[in-house]
Amino acid sequence: MTGTTEPLLSVEHLVVEFPAGRARWVQAVSDVSFSVMEGETLGLVGESGCGKSTTGMAVAQITRPTSGRVIFDGKELTELAGEKLRHAKKGIQLIFQDPISSLNPRRTVAEIVAEPLEVWKVGDRRSRRNRAHEAMEAVGLDPRISGSRRPHEFSGGQCQRISIARALTADPKLMICDEPVSALDVSVQAQIINLLEDTKRRYGLTLVFIAHDLAVVKNVSDKIAVMYLGRLCETAPADELYANPAHPYTKALLASIPSPDPRAATLTARIQGDLPSPLAPPSGCRFRTRCKYAQPRCSEEIPRLSEIGPNHQVACHFPLAAGATMTTTADKKG
């Protein structure tokens, strides 16, 4: 069903609510829509608590959305349940931030990597072992040396390799990587990012890459979606988002990334203050309490995601003009 024009994954008006005690609800994800074409990497970026993981879990139907649609590989997952759902989402695999705790400490690496094959009873034991070995080799682990060891004997970066190998044995089409490198050293982070890029190319994968570091996200993504307090602020091709950020929040996120160039001036467009409570998000635009461009209209009306350029959408009443520099304040257009 995945032609070249149909996205592999479409998310439409996704809403996820959690009970927050005393008959209150947190809307962790509010009206989020995006799509990912086959072979593409979508980066999902935003501060802690903005709903990135919840979005990922809802796409994989581990958390069932409160409303909205998730269409994967031509099937509407949100309509399915039980065995039908299990089959329909077989092509989705997840990789988590904490590589060590997401691996069963009592099993050997070879057993862990073969887990998806056991679940699906693919082939006999021997062919399962061969597939697992192949996947381990693909991620740079020697099955003869590492296969019989247990996760705690490995460093964070190597545990992340094990997670990737396990995901690969399931023969996925879509891999949702939730902060896969956030807990790693810069040098190991580079190894894992390169490995993900190679694996993606080699196996023709589609990725949803979740992280809070926009520099990391930009490096791996074709397209980026910026989230704030459960809502999408902006989506754009990766290089376009960097060159022409239109949402004040995107601009502030960009300004927070430390530049490895000591001569780069320290940017002042930093974001101030703390994230408001997700239990009582600000009315209108959720970013308005921290936005230096906020106007009365921003508290009254929710800004809708609208197209401002090819594949470039922004949800802001006063988006920044294209090419807006990091310092001007008069760069709004009505």
Binding site: V186, A190, D213, K218, N219, D239, Y242
Partner: peptide
């Protein structure tokens, strides 16, 4: 090893 914002995406 540092991913840089000022380089195009997918820069190795």
């Amino acid at each position: 090893a540092i991913p840089r914002l000022d380089l195009p995406s997918h820069t190795r």
